[in-house]
Design a protein around this nucleic acid. Structure first.
Lengths: 333, 333
DNA sequence: CTGAAAGCGCTTACAG
DNA sequence: CTGAAAGCGCTTACAG
C-alpha cells in the first residue's frame, strides 16, 4: 500500500539495464530489431520496475492513441448493447480502447461530443448518428470512419442483411394465411427503416401479400402506442413494426383496447432486443447479428488504420433471421 | 472536403497573432491572467485556424488526461444502463470523457483491462467489480477511485439506500397478508446482496413476517429458474428475488409448473430494469436511483481530482422506492 | 545492433 | 502581462 510514487520511465529502465533509452524503447515496442540478450535484459528491468508505457507520451510522436470512439444515439437503448459488446471486444483484442460517446438523439450534442472526443481517438465508428452525410464526410476527412447500418459512398460501412430475415418473415406470415399486413415505419431519416420498408414491400408483393404503409413513428414504446389507431383503422390481420419497442407499445395498446394478440392481431418486431422474449405474448421478431456487426465495424476501422494487416479478410455474413415466438398466429376469421 | 491536413498548433496561432506560444497557451487555458486584448487576438486566431488542443500534448506536462474509467461487470446487463448514462453526463458536464471498461464477470479480464486503461485516465469508478478489497486498494494507490454499491474503508463510495424501498416493500406484503416469504439471494460475494438481505431480515421481523432464506443464486434469469424448486419446496406465499432478472426467471418457471403469479405466488424483484414493466404480469420491484448514483460517483471522483471545487456538496439522497405492479397480490388461501 | 539527438505539442516556473 | 527556456516520456531518423 505504497503512496503513489511516480511511475517508472524508460530512463529508469535504461539506467537499470545499462543501455540507452532509445534501446529501451526499441526493445519494448519492436523487440525483433534488437539483440536478443539486450532485449531480455531490458524486459527484465522493465518488469522489476513495474513499467507501463505512458500512452500519451507515446501518442505525441506517433500521433496514434490506440483509442477508438463508438458513437451511439442512446446508451440506454437496448439495441446498442450487443453492438457495444462486439465492438469493445474486437477493440480490446487488438489492444485498442473504446470510448463510448452518446449523442442523446441530439445532433448538436453529438457534434459537441465529437469535438471533445475526436482529437483523442484514432478513428470512429458510428453505430447511429444524427449527423448529415456532409458532416460525416467532414469527420472522415480528419480520421478514419466506419458506419453501422448506414451506407454512404466513399465510407466504409457494415449493415445487417435484412433480406434473409424478411424472407423468412413473409413466408411465415403467408403460411399463417395473412393477406393484408401493415408496416408501422420508424424514423423517416433512418437508413435502416428505408431498407426494411423497401425489402418488405418487394417480398410481400412476391408472396401475394398486400403491404399497407402505416406511416412513420418514433422508434419507442410510445411510438408504438400512438400507432395503434392507424393499425386498427387499416383492418389488417397482421402488423410488422419497425422495431421491437414499437411492437411492444403496439401490443400494450391492443390489449388495452380488448384486441387479443395473436388471436385477433398478429404482431412482429425487429431486433430481438433484451426483454422481447418476456412480453406477453413473447414477441416474434427478426434478429440482427448486432454483436458481429459491432465487432466487424471496428475490425474494418482497424485495417484502415494498421494498413499492414490482412487488407480485407472475407466479410462475414450479416444475415438476419426470424425468431418465431408467441405473437404470431393463423388468421382466424 | 479537404484531405486531412495537419491540425493547427499553438505555434501556428502564435505566428498568426504575433505573440509567443506560451502566451497562446495561457490565453487559451487561463484567460484570466492575461491582457484582455491579447487574449482576444489569440482566441480569434485560434478560431480562424480551427484550433483544438491536442489532449495528449497537454496530458504530458500536466499528467492530467481528463478521462475517467467506468468499470462494469457486463455491458449488456440492463442494470448498468442508467448508471452509465448518469456517469457519462456528469463527466461530460465537466469536460471529462468516460471510458467504459467491461470485466465480463472475470477478475482476470478485469485486471488486464485495468492495466490497459488505468494509465490513460485520471481516476476510476467501479460500478461493479470482481476485484478483492486489496486489489481495489492497489488501484487506489495509483489513482483516485470511487465505488458504487460497495463500501470499503478509506475509499469513497456511493450506495443505494435500500432501507426506504424495503420498508415500503415489507409493509406492502404485510398489508397483502403474507406471513411467510422467501428471499432468493444473489451472489455470495455481492455487497448489495448482503445489504438487502440484512435489511430485509430486520424489517420483516419487525413486521412479524417470517423470512425464509432460499440460498444464493446467479443474478440471471437462469438463476431464477433454478431457484424455483427451493421456492416451491419452502411453501411460501411470496418470494423476494435479489434482482429483477432472477424474479423474471422465477416467474417463467412458475408459470411452466402451472403456478399462477400473483394468485398462487407473489413475486418481487429489485432494480426496475428495462423490460420489467412488460413481463407477464408486470413485475413489482424496488427501484434504485441508478442514474443519480452514477452521476454522483463521478462527481465525487472529480472533487477528489479538482480539489479546488466545492469540497463536498450535500450528498443527494439515494433512497430506493417500491414500484407496485401486477406480480403482487393478496394471499388467497 | 546501439547511441546521441531532435522533435511531437503543450505547460509552467523563471525573468523581466 | 509576456517572452525564452526547459521539460513532460516517448519515438525515430541519422550515424556509426
Amino acid at each position: 500500500m505504497e503512496i503513489s510514487k511516480k511511475p517508472a520511465t524508460i530512463y529508469d529502465i535504461a539506467k537499470l539495464a545499462g543501455v540507452n533509452a532509445s534501446t529501451v524503447s526499441r526493445a519494448l515496442s519492436t523487440p525483433g530489431r534488437i539483440n536478443k540478450s539486450t532485449a531480455q535484459k531490458v524486459q527484465l528491468a522493465a518488469e522489476q520496475l513495474n513499467y507501463r508505457v505512458n500512452p500519451f507520451a507515446r501518442a505525441l510522436p506517433t500521433g496514434r492513441t490506440k483509442m477508438l470512439a463508438l458513437m451511439v444515439a442512446d446508451i440506454t437503448n437496448p439495441v446498442f448493447f450487443r453492438v457495444v459488446r462486439g465492438a469493445e471486444s474486437a477493440a480490446a483484442e487488438q489492444g485498442y480502447t473504446l470510448v463510448i460517446a452518446e449523442s442523446q438523439e441530439s445532433s448538436q450534442l453529438e457534434a459537441q461530443t465529437l469535438r471533445r472526443v475526436l482529437p483523442m481517438v484514432d478513428g470512429v465508428v458510428f453505430a447511429s448518428t444524427r449527423l448529415s452525410d456532409d458532416e460525416i464526410r467532414v469527420v472522415k476527412s480528419e480520421k478514419p470512419v466506419t458506419l453501422i447500418n448506414r451506407e454512404l459512398t466513399g465510407i466504409g460501412s457494415i449493415v445487417a442483411r435484412n433480406e434473409s430475415g424478411i424472407e423468412e418473415l413473409i413466408s411465415h406470415l403467408h403460411n399463417l394465411g395473412h393477406h393484408r399486413v401493415g408496416y408501422v415505419g420508424g424514423p423517416q431519416a433512418s437508413w435502416v427503416n428505408a431498407d426494411r420498408g423497401r425489402i418488405l414491400k418487394a417480398k410481400a408483393s412476391n408472396a401475394g401479400i398486400e403491404l399497407v404503409d402505416l406511416g412513420v413513428h418514433p422508434p419507442t414504446q410510445n411510438g408504438g402506442r400512438a400507432a395503434f389507431e392507424p393499425v386498427r383503422a387499416a383492418k389488417v390481420s397482421a402488423v410488422i413494426a419497425y422495431n421491437d419497442l414499437i411492437a411492444i407499445g403496439l401490443m400494450n395498446s391492443a390489449v388495452d383496447a380488448g384486441i387479443r394478440v395473436p388471436q385477433d392481431l398478429t404482431v412482429v418486431g425487429f431486433d430481438n432486443i433484451f426483454g422481447s422474449d418476456f412480453t406477453n405474448p413473447p414477441l416474434t421478431t427478426v434478429e440482427s447479428p448486432l454483436e458481429l456487426i459491432g465487432g466487424e465495424a471496428v475490425r474494418q476501422l482497424l485495417v484502415a488504420l494498421e494498413d499492414s494487416n490482412d487488407s480485407t479478410g472475407p466479410r462475414p455474413d450479416t444475415k438476419t433471421k426470424l425468431i418465431i415466438r408467441g405473437s404470431t398466429a393463423e388468421v382466424c376469421k
